[in-house]
Computed example of a mutant assay.
Amino acid sequence: MYTPDRDAAMAFYTPLFGWRAVDLGQGAGTMLQVPGYGDHLAATVDPGFHERQAAAPPGFADAIGGLVVIGAGEPPRWHVTFTVADRDESAATAERLGATVVARPDTTWTRDALVRDPQGAEFTVSQFTPPEW
């Protein structure tokens, strides 16, 4: 979520969805969490979820999104990120289907691709790649 007013956004979404906002510090933005989400995934569809998340920041298993504060004049908006098993394979499939890969940034925790679909909508595909510690 991109918003000029973090507090107003959370005043709306916290009672609506039960989200919790956790500041990541060092200008890294805000993690949006659903308490217990990681436990739900581990108990239902992904038994190895917590083991793969062991090196992630505290609370990352419960993360469902992020909040970025934007400047005046920039429109508030949502940007959807889809978790994928393989960023490059997903990007190649999107291109084969008519999309344009705009960027392929790597972060400490992910390999991402910003994709623009044939109609012009943008989204990100993200492969979780935690550091080896």
Rank of each mutant, 00 (worst) to 15 (best):
1 M>S: 15
5 D>K: 06
5 D>L: 03
5 D>G: 11
5 D>E: 08
6 R>A: 07
7 D>G: 10
7 D>M: 06
7 D>K: 14
7 D>Q: 14
8 A>M: 07
10 M>W: 05
11 A>F: 00
12 F>N: 07
13 Y>G: 04
14 T>Q: 13
17 F>L: 14
19 W>I: 06
23 D>P: 02
24 L>R: 15
25 G>F: 06
26 Q>H: 12
27 G>A: 01
27 G>K: 02
27 G>E: 03
28 A>V: 08
29 G>M: 06
31 M>Y: 01
32 L>S: 07
32 L>P: 02
34 V>P: 00
35 P>Q: 12
36 G>E: 08
37 Y>Q: 08
37 Y>K: 12
37 Y>S: 00
39 D>T: 10
39 D>Y: 04
39 D>E: 13
40 H>F: 10
40 H>T: 14
41 L>N: 05
41 L>Y: 09
41 L>W: 00
43 A>P: 02
44 T>N: 09
44 T>G: 01
45 V>C: 10
45 V>F: 01
45 V>K: 08
46 D>L: 12
47 P>C: 05
47 P>H: 05
47 P>T: 10
47 P>V: 11
48 G>Q: 11
49 F>P: 06
49 F>I: 05
49 F>W: 11
51 E>K: 14
52 R>D: 07
57 P>F: 10
59 G>R: 10
59 G>C: 03
60 F>A: 15
61 A>S: 13
62 D>Q: 04
65 G>R: 06
66 G>A: 13
67 L>N: 03
69 V>S: 06
71 G>S: 12
77 R>H: 13
78 W>M: 15
79 H>E: 12
80 V>G: 04
80 V>C: 03
80 V>R: 07
81 T>C: 09
82 F>S: 08
82 F>I: 14
83 T>V: 15
86 D>A: 09
87 R>C: 14
88 D>Q: 09
88 D>G: 03
90 S>M: 06
92 A>K: 15
93 T>R: 15
93 T>E: 14
94 A>K: 08
94 A>P: 00
95 E>K: 00
97 L>M: 07
98 G>M: 04
99 A>M: 03
100 T>M: 06
100 T>P: 01
101 V>A: 01
102 V>Q: 02
103 A>D: 15
104 R>L: 02
104 R>A: 09
104 R>M: 04
104 R>T: 10
105 P>N: 09
106 D>K: 11
108 T>G: 12
109 W>Y: 11
109 W>I: 02
109 W>N: 09
109 W>G: 08
110 T>H: 11
110 T>W: 05
111 R>H: 11
113 A>P: 07
113 A>I: 05
114 L>E: 06
116 R>G: 01
116 R>P: 00
118 P>L: 08
119 Q>N: 03
119 Q>H: 07
120 G>V: 08
122 E>Q: 14
123 F>V: 13
124 T>S: 12
124 T>G: 08
124 T>Y: 07
127 Q>R: 09
128 F>Y: 15
129 T>F: 03
129 T>M: 07
129 T>G: 02
130 P>M: 04
